[in-house]
């Protein structure tokens, strides 16, 4: 991936006001797969006793990354929107560390895109969260 195409992908993320508000950064992409990162920010804390990020922020990252994976699929046309998304929270994200998400659009019909996503922090051995969802395509 060239620097110019990375900048173009980051510009697409910045065009989504809420993704920008959460400081989401584009990392890389290939066909139907996108990796993004969200920095640690004290404003995103959900449990002040531990400093762990709120699940809602992790959900927003996984949702954004999943939608981006739909866009990155070669058969996708038009816009997209989430139909449903389930997130399993396997362990708290380590405070102070960015969260990295990779989403894969593994199947696409004329109207529905199927996506899986995984979120990790720098302790890579065990995922922080996993998501699976369906998205609108072809509209």
């Amino acid at each position: 991936m060239t620097e110019a195409s990375k900048d173009a992908a980051q510009a697409l993320i910045n065009a989504l006001p809420h993704a920008k508000a959460l400081g989401m950064r584009f990392i890389s992409s290939s066909e139907g797969e996108v990796t993004m990162e969200m920095p640690y920010d004290p404003r995103f804390i959900g449990d002040p006793a531990t400093g762990v990020i709120h699940g809602g922020a992790v959900y927003a990252l996984l949702d954004t990354c999943s939608g981006a994976a739909v866009f990155a699929h070669p058969d996708h046309k038009g816009a997209t929107a989430t139909i449903d998304l389930r997130v399993d929270y396997m362990r708290p994200a380590a405070p102070g560390q960015p969260i990295r998400a990779t989403a894969t659009c593994y199947n696409m019909t004329r109207t529905v895109a199927f996506v899986r996503a995984i979120a990790t922090d720098t302790r890579d051995d065990k995922p922080v969260a996993m998501a699976s969802g369906t998205f609108v395509t072809g509209i």
Binding site: A15, L16, P17, H18, A19, K20, A21, L22, H54, G55, G56, A57, Y59, A60, L61, L62, D63, T64, G67, A79, A81, T82, L85, V87
Partner: peptide, 21 residues
């Protein structure tokens, strides 16, 4: 800054999810 689709505009799915959670 809760918007996900500025063209419509529509709330970001992540903002809606965070609200519900």
């Amino acid at each position: 800054d809760l918007v996900g689709n500025p063209a419509l505009p529509a709330l970001h799915g992540g903002a809606t999810a965070a609200f519900l959670e």
